[in-house]
Structure formats: C-alpha cells, structure tokens
Amino acid sequence: MLIRKAPQIKSSEITSEADYLDRRSFLAKAGLAAAGLAGASPVIAAVASDPGASGRVLENVSESPLSLDEAPNSWRDVTTYNNFYEFGTGKEDPSRYAGSLVTRPWQVKVSGECDQPGDYNLEDILSPHALEERVYRLRCVEAWSMVIPWVGFPLADLLKRFQPNSDARFVRFRTLYDPGQMPGQRRRILDWPYVEGLTIEEAMNPLAFMAVGVYGRELPNQNGAPMRLVVPWKYGFKSIKTINAIHFTRTRPRTSWEASAPREYGFYANVNPNVDHPRWSQASERIIGSGLFAPRRKTEMFNGYAEQVAHLYQGLDLRRNF
C-alpha cells in the first residue's frame, strides 16, 4: 500500500467555489487579457483542480467546448471508487493495490488493417497531441454516475496517425496482462487480458477521447494510467484502461464483458434508460458524491450525448443490440 502525506495547501491557494463555478467566464477574460498582452500566446486554461489531488501536473491544457458545464466529483471520489478488476473487484481495491503497476517505460503495439503498424513508445504516441480537458459524465452499467474532468486528446487524432485502411471497420483495444503487477488477474473472473472495441465510426466520433490525465494531473494508476479510453455515451466498462495494444480489424472484436455474460453485456453498451440490464433497471442512476439522502438521477439516452452520436445507430435495433 502506498501511504503518502497529504500535500499541505494554504487555504489561500484553494479556488473558492464561486470562482470555480464561474471558471469559464474567468477563462474567457484571462484569454482576452493574455491575447491583449502577449499577442498570440497559447491560452492557459483554468482546468479543474482539487485540493486533494496529487501526481505530476500536466502543462498547457486547454478547455473544450465538449465539456459539461457541471461541477466534477471530488478527486477522492474519482480515485477511490473504481471498477478495475485487474486490481480486485472491490470499489476501493484499485486505489489500494494499483501502486504495483509500472507505467514507464510503456509501449503500445499497433497492428492490423493500417499503414503504420508497429511498437510505439508512449512518448512518441503522446508528443504530437495538444492536451485538452473534457468534463464528461461517466455512467456505469451498475447504475451510478460521476462527473470527471479528464485530460487527453481526441481518439480520432491518434488513430488517424496509424493510417487505418478501408478494411479497418473496428478498433480493438487491449489492457496490459501481467498478474505480477495486476494481482486481480491471478483469478480468472474475466478472460484476461481485458479487451474492448468500437466501430471505426464510433472511434472517429469527436466525443471519443484518449485520456492521459484527470484533474489537470497525470492519471493515477487506478484510473487507467498511462492511457485509457473515455467513451462518454457508453457504459463505463467500454472505456478500457491501461491500454497497451490497438488493433484495426475487419471483424467485430469479442469484448471481455460480452464474452463473460453475453445476455447481460453487449458490444455496443450504449447508455439507454429504456433497455434494462436483465437483472436491474437502467432508468435512473445514483450520483456518486451526492451523499446519503439525495434522490437518483434520471438516466439520459446516450448519457445525454444523443445529439452527437444517435446518427451512428440509425436503423439499428438498440433493444437487440444493447
């Protein structure tokens, strides 16, 4: 277990809630001021911060118009309530045991139907991309949700660099398999390594995001360091963590949860309040961090992103293709 001393932060350094909630207008003003003073220098955005946050601060993070205008969950909620079965099936297991994961050096194997396959170093994967913050709601298939300020870059920008060819109809992602570093993999509760996939159209949608950080800092291991997918209109399990392989393929990949319980988890796994999980309702969700006495929230179609993604599923029976 990692025991770290909580960072000492003067109360004067903490952004007040009012300023925090008003950060976008602050940013706009700051941007105007910066533009006026320094010409075309890049705008340093007021990304979300939390007094409890730790880890290396990511520089030059800009804000995104695709972000939700909602206050995110606390750093503590985001980093201690995780489903990452590679480190145990309890919600707090990942935060306890993910310290054993070594994310440097890191390589990502790119293969399949593309013109630039190969083994890429993490630095080479990340270096061309400008970082941006995306505040998204994460809706878990277990009927809870959180608002998380991710930092990363559009998935499409990354995939295009590998030049997928016309046979690349799907993208398959894989998590590291190493039971030495990931103690949860010693039990075969899932068919390790964890595999997820998207259609190429889904992967190229501007909302699909590759995250390398959260709360303006590098991703903690329990959140999927060094890089993870974030697909906000799908249930959380589609947003695969700790990726070390990307494969372009002609055929639909067999994803881990689908393989484990095909009646309960499908390939698409779009957030849909009208199609229940066979054992529980998906009509509403518990908001993490809202305390003991808060009501549930009504779940939105495609987790509130219907406008951006509904066209991807035209003509598809979402009841059968859940």
Binding site: N73, R76, Y81, K91, E92, W144, G289, G291, L292
Partner: peptide, 15 residues
Amino acid sequence: AFELLGFNLGANPVE
C-alpha cells in the same frame, strides 16, 4: 453514515 469519529462509508454510502 454521519461521518463521525473519522468513520465514513466511501463514495457511494447508500450502496
């Protein structure tokens, strides 16, 4: 439930 004496029920207290 009432976060007394340093006890707490984590991020999802209802669950």
